[in-house]
Design a binder for these strands. Structure first.
Length: 543
RNA sequence: GCCCCCGUAGCUCAGUGGAUAGAGCGCGGGUUUCCUAAACCCGGUGCGAAGGUUCGAUUCCUUCCGGGGGCACCA
């Protein structure tokens, strides 16, 4: 636990000990208070302890609150609850600290340098990315940013399928275009296939399927790189499936499973049957080597597991998949287990599918829109924000009409505007020569000032939760709340000139500027995690 | 048939074992000589249903109903 909550939790427990509870305590459910009238943190400690202490909840809460010794917050009992309110003095110290740290505020060493790989976006490199892929890419990248920020050693990886059935069809399609034929049944027909065939001819690639496939996939990888770069995403590694076999890891994985008794021959094919060696294992059999002698995608995955967990030494691998692959999860877990890899080290995050609603924009219902088109229409910031504002667990309606027409109604601009306003204030004040170097933060006392600090105080906890639960979608909601408080602060100045940040009094101005900076860098810190830009100014909208 | 996800306001979605369940959009009304009005203020019905666990369930468990997805020698 980090931030003020850790201190509150410790003080609460100490107080409970003082009022006579010993042994193991129940979960005190200390959490952010839902309602601001209950302070910043609240615990139903009275109810929790009523049975063991054999006293009334209100009585217990009262005694506990009185026994709390805490610098950061004051405790108050209401009913059976113990509520904590962060003290103004502490909030003022926090403002100074955050303003000094800048956008690094919230960074931690939670991960202790754990080597983690996040593999995401790995679609077959045989066609353009579409909107649904964008969700996994944005999620994966934001996960990486969150894990990096919390002290993990993270690598982004794209697994390039270059030797599976789809890839071969792609190669055949290029060959067909190269030779002026139509692509085969079930092949790829987009204009990009013809472009690649033309490029291959120009580059002097020999016209056979394998050479053209490799050439074509390399071309596609370049295209993919360019598209994801527009979203601020770059990969550390584009790992080609064929490397699994060239390095011998695929063969090694199969050999290891054979020795351990996990493989069985049936119908001329080689099957992985985990229940053979372990009767508790899932009872599902999967082909590893086809009757034709070709390996399956699953066989490559076996070697790929060894590559990551053993050859490259990642302690944890996080995969982001579309929900349509969920049936593959037990198989991968079973494979990891059979290879001697603790299955919990393989984390698979499924993101539900994206349903496109085009509204009145297109009469052609269900038309596939590419990720690139989406970025063209709504811009990278809105794309990232829109995808990040939802848990991966729920199916998502992408209302293209709204996304396209929404400009000032899009919440992402609200966050950015809050940042731009703060930057504007700092810019406005930058000409003042009478401002002291050091701010006297005791001058901050209005509720709308301290409430900004109050939200800022929660940022480290939000980051920590997002990292531990692998849920970066928590970040935009925090940012929205902060932007709200910032707007209140700003509006106070619109109501009364004396409440503006920049006033005649240089000392007061200086103190408020410190608060502006603390809020701005916290916004920046959060926007960084979700990959949305934090502009210093935003142009006025035309009517 | 089996497996996974979801069901919260008109719409799109957050959220939590506890105190009066939130936001955005949409709709109606109001606010600008003032650090950017992409802002602010005012206005509303809601946790699919039934059981169970619990001092307390929208949250956890079971069943049912509804929506989406998956069950290949495709990936």
């Amino acid at each position: 636990m980090t931030g003020p909550k850790a201190e509150v939790a410790a003080a609460l427990e100490a107080a409970i000990r003082r009022v006579g509870a010993d042994g193991e305590l129940p979960d005190l459910e200390l959490a952010r208070a839902r309602d601001a009238v209950h302070g910043d943190y609240a615990s139903p400690a009275g109810m929790k302890l009523a049975r063991t202490l054999r006293r009334r909840p209100e009585e217990i809460a009262g005694q506990v609150a009185a026994a709390v010794e805490l610098d950061v917050a004051e405790a108050e009992a209401v009913g059976g609850y113990v509520n904590f309110r962060l003290r103004p003095e502490w909030l003022r110290r926090l403002v100074r600290e955050v303003a000094g740290q800048g956008p690094e505020y919230g960074r931690s060493q939670l991960g202790r340098g754990e080597p983690v790989q996040v593999e995401f976006g790995s679609i077959n490199p045989t066609g353009p990315l579409h909107i649904g892929h964008g969700r996994g890419i944005v999620l994966g990248d934001s996960l990486v940013r969150t894990l990096e920020f919390t002290g993990h050693a993270v690598a982004r990886e794209y697994y390039v399928n270059d030797s599976n059935t789809q890839a071969k069809k792609f190669g055949e399609s290029i060959l067909a275009r190269y030779e002026g034929r139509e692509p085969p049944e079930g092949g790829y027909v987009g204009a990009y296939v013809e472009e690649i065939a033309a490029a291959a001819r120009k580059a002097g690639v020999v016209p056979n399927e394998e050479a053209l496939r490799r050439f074509g996939i390399a071309q596609m990888v370049e295209r993919l790189k360019a598209v994801v770069a527009r979203l601020g995403v770059r990969y550390d590694e584009w790992f080609w499936e064929s490397r699994v076999w060239e390095s011998g890891l695929g063969q090694e994985a199969i050999e290891r499973l054979r020795k351990a008794g996990y493989l069985i021959e049936k119908d001329g094919a080689l099957w992985f049957a985990p229940a053979l060696a372990d009767e508790n294992a899932p009872d599902e059999e999967r082909v590893v080597i086809r009757r034709t002698g070709e390996h399956t995608y699953f066989a490559s995955d076996l070697g790929y597991l060894l590559s990551r967990f053993e050859a490259r030494g990642f302690h944890r691998v996080i995969e982001v998949w579309g929900a349509d692959h969920h049936g593959y999860v037990p198989r991968m877990k079973a494979a990891a287990e059979a290879l001697g890899i603790e299955p919990d080290r393989l984390v698979i995050i499924l993101n539900q599918l994206v349903n496109l609603q085009e509204g009145k924009m297109s009469k052609r219902a269900g038309r596939l829109v590419t990720l690139e088109e989406l970025i063209d229409r709504v811009g990278p910031d809105a794309v990232r924000y829109f995808f990040m504002s939802r848990t991966p667990d729920t199916m998502m309606e992408f209302d293209l009409e709204l996304a396209t027409t929404q400009n000032k109604t899009n919440p992402v601009y609200y966050l950015q505007y809050a940042h731009a306003r703060l930057a504007g204030i700092e810019r406005f004040a930058s000409g003042r020569a009478d401002l002291a170097a050091e701010a006297d933060l005791d001058l901050l006392g209005h509720p709308w000032e301290l409430d900004v600090a109050r939200v800022i105080a929660h940022w480290p906890e939000v980051v920590e939760t997002a990292a531990l639960k692998l849920e970066p979608h928590r970040v935009p909601y925090f940012l929205y709340e902060l932007a709200d408080r910032v707007s209140d602060f700003y509006e106070a100045g619109n109501e009364r000139t004396e409440n503006r940040a920049v006033v005649d009094d240089p000392a007061l101005t200086r103190a408020r500027l410190e608060l502006c900076r603390a809020a701005r860098v916290t916004l920046q810190s959060g926007l960084n995690l979700i990959g949305v830009s934090a502009p210093d100014r935003m142009d006025k909208l035309e009517e």
